[in-house]
Amino acid sequence: MKSTPPSSPPIRRGRTRTVLPGFGLSAAITSLMIVGLVIIPLAVLILRAASLGPAGFLAAAWTPRARAAYAVSLGASLAAAIISSLLGLLVAWVLVRLEFPGRRILDALVDVPLALPTAVAGLVYSTLYVEKGWLGQVLVPMGIRGAYSRLGIVLVLVFVSLPFAIRVVQPVIESLDKDTEEAARLLGASKSQTFLRVVLPGILPAVVTGFALALARALGEYGSVVFISGNMPFKTEIAPVLIVSRLEEFAYAEATAIAVVLLGMSLSMLIVVNVLQQRLARNAQ
C-alpha cells in the first residue's frame, strides 16, 4: 500500500484509555472506601502497636492470659475448620450426587449460618446444650458439655464456618467428570480406591480452600462464641473476647497488641493455605 503520501503522523503517548466512561469516578469512590475504611484503619492499628516498641509489645501481647487465649482460639478454630471441611465434603457430595426428596430444601438450609446473626446462633446453641436444653438433657448426663466449654466454642465455630466449606467444594464436585470414575471402576478399582485415587485429588484443592475460608472465619468469630464459651480466662477465653475485655478496661495498648497478633495469625494462615492450594492445584493437573 503506497497510496498515501508518507506523512509524519503525531505520536500519541499514554493512550490506554477506553471509550467506556466512568474510570475517574469509579476509581475515586473505590479508593476512597478502600483507603479510608481498610488501609488507614489497619495501618493505624499496626502503627499503634509498633509504637509500643518491641519490649512493650511483647509485654502487652505475650502475657500468660493472652498466650492461653491464642491457644484456645487457634485450637478451637483448627478443630472447627477440620470438622467443617469433612462434614462440608459429605454434605456437598450428597447434594450433588444423590437425588432425594427435599434436596433443594437441604441445599437452601446450608446457607442459614450466612444469614442468621451470629449472636442468635450463640444464644440458641447455649440454650440447646445446657443441662435442660433439647440436646443437653441427653448429652450432659453422658458427660458431654456443649455449653460453657471448649467443645461449645468448637460447635458454634463449626456452625458459622460450615457454609464456606460446603459452597467451595460443591461446584467442584459438580464439574467432576463422571466418566473418569466409571473408567476407574471398569479398570477394577473398588469404590474406595476410586474415591481416594480419582475423585479426591480433583477436589482436594477446593477442600483446602474451604478449610482456609472456614479457618479465617472461625479465628475472627466473636458474636456466637461470647454466648457459649463462658469466657473463662485460661480455659475458654478466645483472643477476640480478650481484646474486648481489655478494651472495656480501657487498656488500649494491650488490646491493640493482641489485635495485631490475631490479625497476623489470620493473614499469615491465609497466605500459607493459598500457597498450599496453588501447589495442590498444580499437582492435580
Binding site: 506523512s7 503522523p9 503525531p10 505520536i11 500519541r12 503517548r13 493512550r15 484509555r17 477506553t18 471509550v19
Partner: peptide, 24 residues
C-alpha cells in the same frame, strides 16, 4: 469506529481529522 484509540496515526472522514472524536 472510535472504540479504540491509535497510538499513532490519523483517521480522516471526508478529509476531516476525526482521530480525537469520541465514539459517541
Amino acid at each position: 469506529a472510535g472504540l479504540e484509540w491509535p497510538d499513532q496515526g490519523r483517521i480522516e472522514e471526508d478529509g476531516t481529522d476525526i482521530t480525537d472524536r469520541h465514539a459517541r
